[in-house]
């Protein structure tokens, strides 16, 4: 299995740095960004990103807004929200906007890993389905069926 490509977004630099190291140690390929805009830029370069781990509360473009943009441009990329506050509302809002799941900070690394894997899995399934559909389409176009 391919290593999932993860993008970690949070404005807290030490958090991102440490988390990146820990995730890398767990055999993930990790890119990091310190703001919503930077995250979008990196996504543009690495379109094959599987999962974005996104903090809700950030200065400037906040998590929800970033999530909307990501989902618009890269609908297949899954997003796991990290929320500082225990409000169900912000989590629900994130889920409605297309996030895969949410975790509360500080989060357990194992839990996070599990979510990332699930999300990656989901993305792969999606992609397979799309590929299959494309193949079918191509085949029907060429009259092979």
């Amino acid at each position: 299995m391919m290593k999932p490509l993860v993008l970690l977004v949070d404005d807290e630099v030490p958090f991102v740095e440490t988390m990146t190291k820990r995730l890398k140690k767990r055999d993930l390929v990790v890119n990091s960004a310190y703001s919503g805009q930077e995250a979008l830029d990196i996504l543009d370069k690495h379109r094959n990103t599987d999962v974005v781990i996104l903090d809700v509360k950030m200065p400037g473009m906040d998590g929800i807004e970033t999530l909307e943009k990501i989902k618009k441009s890269y609908p297949l990329t899954e997003v796991v929200m990290l929320t500082g506050h225990a409000t169900v509302e912000s989590a629900i809002e994130g889920m409605k906007k297309g996030a895969y799941d949410y975790l509360m900070k500080p989060c357990d690394i194992d839990q996070l890993m599990q979510k990332v894997e699930e999300a990656t899995q989901k993305k792969l399934v999606h992609e397979d389905k799309i590929k299959e559909a494309k193949v079918k389409e191509a085949m029907s176009m060429h009259g092979l069926e």
Partner: peptide
Amino acid sequence: ASGIAHEINNPVAIMVEEAGWIED
């Protein structure tokens, strides 16, 4: 209280992550 909670949450998260990193 909620302001303080927000502010404290992030450092605590970092501390926990750092500890986790050491553990790793």
